[in-house]
Design a protein around this nucleic acid. Structure first.
Lengths: 221, 221
DNA sequence: CAGTGTGAAGCGCTTCACAGCT
DNA sequence: AGCTGTGAAGCGCTTCACACTG
């Protein structure tokens, strides 16, 4: 399974990241009652250009009407399909500290097809407390929840020293996607998808441009 | 001031992001008492390769000793210099909700040269409460704090509808770097550096690979 | 030898430009 | 006319390979 598989592989990683943003602005346009958009308008809204938008979409099919643009509703539906957002996904949060608790209650998740189904922690002082309307469970119960309810994505929000061991645990439980907030690169088998959110690195990145005396190359991420 | 400036411009954005990670593992190595590292070892620790590490560093000078590698302490000091981490930076957090409060108390900031000097919110119910040992202030006081204490980076942790208006406010107060947690692309003049952390997009990105039936192209971010 | 520093090759993403619908 | 879809050109990051050095 190398080269280009039968599925829509071959789409650059950067394209997938932009697809998420397109989907986001389309949701907004849909709420605003807009019926039709051009690639140029989408590009303006997400800080890219028309050609980029069209090229991104072309990896997955033809969704527009020449001379007219894209149907907001239809394009959004297609993007949701491509991104696998058709069905709701179960996510589990590991770590019931400040960050984990904030994530458990983050309103952006439930509203967008992600169910926070469990919060775990190993600290006896945290276990049993309520987060997001649910009892914080010991990490040992993770395998059971994964088996019985199913966990699509594990969110790691524990201190750095514990992160790798937590990752090993969730992988062993059969979870194959991880969103990692610990400032550490996790080691995992290649079939596991990992996404890192390193908030300190983000600040350091900003610091670099402050030290330069202002002037980023361009807008991104 | 186009082309390549007199400073170490010309370093790819991707390089700067990796520099942050190098600095991170070097800090760990220093704590472990390691005196010397090779580019290969650094590469292994941050999931790149030796050539990439050397090329990244070569944008800023020659820091190693041939046949030996790099002095952990010295390389880390140089990286801290390049990233502008020599002096501590003041950060202000806008939004005293769950996320903003968690960020205010995030231990990774203070320990790495970033001072959380103020927390702001516009909700009267939140103002005056304590966060990170300090009183939550009304957003109107931001300009005063910026003038008197200095704010290097503003962290936006408010609901999406308020994000743009908050960004306008902090920019008007003279802050030139923003870390944005709202799921929305902010419009700002080009000399402002913005870094977006869109947690929902991260989940959607993971969802894409779940829908594909597993198998990311490679590790990144 | 072991490992850095670096020009050059390789490669993948982005941008261009235009044919082709509507 | 207006805007999409797309091959081809352009460009920048990554990888290679090797001269060079301690």
């Amino acid at each position: 399974m190398v080269g280009h598989a039968e599925t829509q592989r071959g789409a650059p990683t950067a394209t997938i990241e932009r697809l998420c943003r397109y989907q986001q602005v389309l949701a907004q346009l849909e709420r605003d009652g807009v019926k039709t958009v051009s690639s140029g308008e989408i590009g303006r809204l997400v800080a890219t250009n028309a050609a980029q938008v069209r090229k991104d979409l072309s990896h997955f099919g033809e969704f527009g009407t020449r001379g007219l643009g894209y149907s907001v509703t239809e394009l959004r539906a297609r993007l949701r399909g491509i991104l696998g957002l058709g069905e709701r996904r179960n996510i589990a949060i590991i770590g019931a500290g400040n960050l984990g608790s904030a994530l458990a209650d983050y309103p952006g998740f439930e509203g967008r097809g992600f169910n926070v189904i469990a919060v775990f922690d190993n600290n006896p002082a945290k276990i049993g407390h309520r987060r997001h309307g649910m009892r914080v469970r010991p990490l040992g119960e993770l395998a059971t929840v994964a088996r019985e309810t199913g966990i699509d994505i594990a969110v790691i929000a524990v201190p750095e020293p514990a992160a790798q061991s937590v990752a090993d645990t969730v992988i062993a439980a059969g979870v194959s996607a991880i969103l990692n907030f610990a400032p550490k690169h996790l080691h995992a088998p290649p079939q596991i998808v990992i996404r890192n959110v390193n908030m300190t690195s983000q600040l350091e990145y900003l610091s670099y441009f402050l030290a330069l005396g202002e002037g980023p190359p361009e807008e991104g991420a």
